[in-house]
Design a protein around this nucleic acid. Sequence first.
DNA 1: CCGGCTTTGTGAAAACATGCACGAGCGCCC
DNA 2: GGGCGCTCGTGCATGTTTTCACAAAGCCGG
Lengths: 227, 227
Amino acid sequence: MDGQRTRRRIPEATVARLPVYLRILSEQFDDGVTNMSSEQLADFAGLNAAKVRKDLSYLGSYGTRGVGYEVEYLVYQIRRELGLTHDWPVVIVGAGNLGQALAGYGGFGDRGFPVGGIVDVDESKVGSLVGGVRVRHLDEVAQVVQSRGISIGVIATPGAAAQEVADALVAAGVTSLLNFAPTVINVPHGISVRKVDLAVELQILSYYEQRRASAKAATLHAVPGAR
Amino acid sequence: MDGQRTRRRIPEATVARLPVYLRILSEQFDDGVTNMSSEQLADFAGLNAAKVRKDLSYLGSYGTRGVGYEVEYLVYQIRRELGLTHDWPVVIVGAGNLGQALAGYGGFGDRGFPVGGIVDVDESKVGSLVGGVRVRHLDEVAQVVQSRGISIGVIATPGAAAQEVADALVAAGVTSLLNFAPTVINVPHGISVRKVDLAVELQILSYYEQRRASAKAATLHAVPGAR
DNA sequence: CCGGCTTTGTGAAAACATGCACGAGCGCCC
DNA sequence: GGGCGCTCGTGCATGTTTTCACAAAGCCGG
Ligand SMILES: NC(=O)c1ccc[n+]([C@@H]2O[C@H](COP(=O)([O-])OP(=O)(O)OC[C@H]3O[C@@H](n4cnc5c(N)ncnc54)[C@H](O)[C@@H]3O)[C@@H](O)[C@H]2O)c1
Ligand SMILES: NC(=O)c1ccc[n+]([C@@H]2O[C@H](COP(=O)([O-])OP(=O)(O)OC[C@H]3O[C@@H](n4cnc5c(N)ncnc54)[C@H](O)[C@@H]3O)[C@@H](O)[C@H]2O)c1
């Protein structure tokens, strides 16, 4: 077995862009494109070519000078690096509006993240079918997680319950959390957390809107948009 | 007159944290807390105190040495800086699963972003009521936007329609977009875009999961989680 | 086999963000 | 009213990310 030893550490910013490249490349591949330059990929991703090349260079030297990258091979390499060579079932906690929308959403399982379980505390929801999966009680979350080998948990409960749910998930053995509740959660070292917060996004937009408005009032040129 | 030109430019990273502080402070205020130190706020936000102080210093010097920050006043200042002193109605495009969940979601209007309109192209949806708002046709989006003075658009259509929808929104006068479709959209200079992409988040988690797994295989110590 | 054209891969510089450390200012208590 | 303890505000060092720019590498046509 060869030198997998130098497990290259990929910068966080790059990790966050790899999924974007992956989607673009997969789509292009489906459209019959077999080869792309960093310039073309950058255009699709709304970035500049140097950044794309540097990002891809963390995966290894998979391009061909004067030609570009072979789309299919690059898709394979990114998938491998992101750990998408196998499915990662997820458990959704909270079978409310959002939890149901997520469970019913095809693009989830489609992309390698099938819903392996849904749990809630509301007895009127436990036992019902959501997105084809039967809702279980939060108390059984450890069993759900362990029986399916789940390592990713999705928190779709009200903010007030988020910390408690996070604790339960971690205790059950989950090591990555995607938090939709508008609350900062604390987890032990070694657990990954990502947060999706609608209000934060809107407030950031509001900041730039407000800024544009005051810039206009001062008869100045436009402020560059955020990304 | 570039007097206002000296409008303190706040670093993007700070702008993204202000909403978090705002939520924490508002909550604490409701709980009767009148004063907080940077250390306390940092704990709630999962950051360190120096960062909090530096972030807040962009707003001005509103703390009191030896004491901390007055919660109520800080809430006011952050709201002012983020442009949250008035409502920003939004228009939602796409009345599907996600669009309906968003429209029905109270935490939206609650926080100063009332749903000012919903549009779709599906004739079977146009005319129906979603979250108390009547769905109109995409063709009428300019009228909706202008009659309500909307500057923020939310894209909740399939990816294939996202660019077309973005173009229509921009043409209608919208200057900020929140994109839930898994597609990079191109907009003219001066328009802000934020993207929320579930698949990207899960794939980032997958990367760290995979990395943890191979670190374990190599009998090495754990990899720090992402934030 | 060569020279021209293209595009990668990557050092080095610049820009940005974080974390540390400490002086300065404030409140409180004696 | 002076000293003490606390916490802010910020200069500076460190770390990370982006951008630039160019040599090296591959392809192609002759
Ligand atoms: N609905 C949206 O469009 C939307 C958008 C963005 C963010 N959010 C956030 O997502 C979260 C869920 O929103 P929602 O609209 O689905 O709310 P909801 O009230 O419809 O659903 C919440 C669900 O969580 C369950 N729950 C409560 N405490 C629980 C616990 N301790 N353990 C397990 N389950 C528990 C409830 O029984 C309920 O089924 C909220 O934090 C909200 O802020 C929602
Ligand atoms: N459902 C989820 O939980 C979820 C989660 C994350 C992301 N998303 C993303 O959000 C988007 C919407 O998802 P969904 O589940 O609501 O899909 P959906 O199919 O339920 O709804 C899409 C809606 O958009 C409308 N539409 C299509 N083309 C349009 C156009 N050109 N103009 C206006 N409206 C148009 C359709 O008529 C439909 O009502 C997708 O891009 C999806 O990837 C959904």
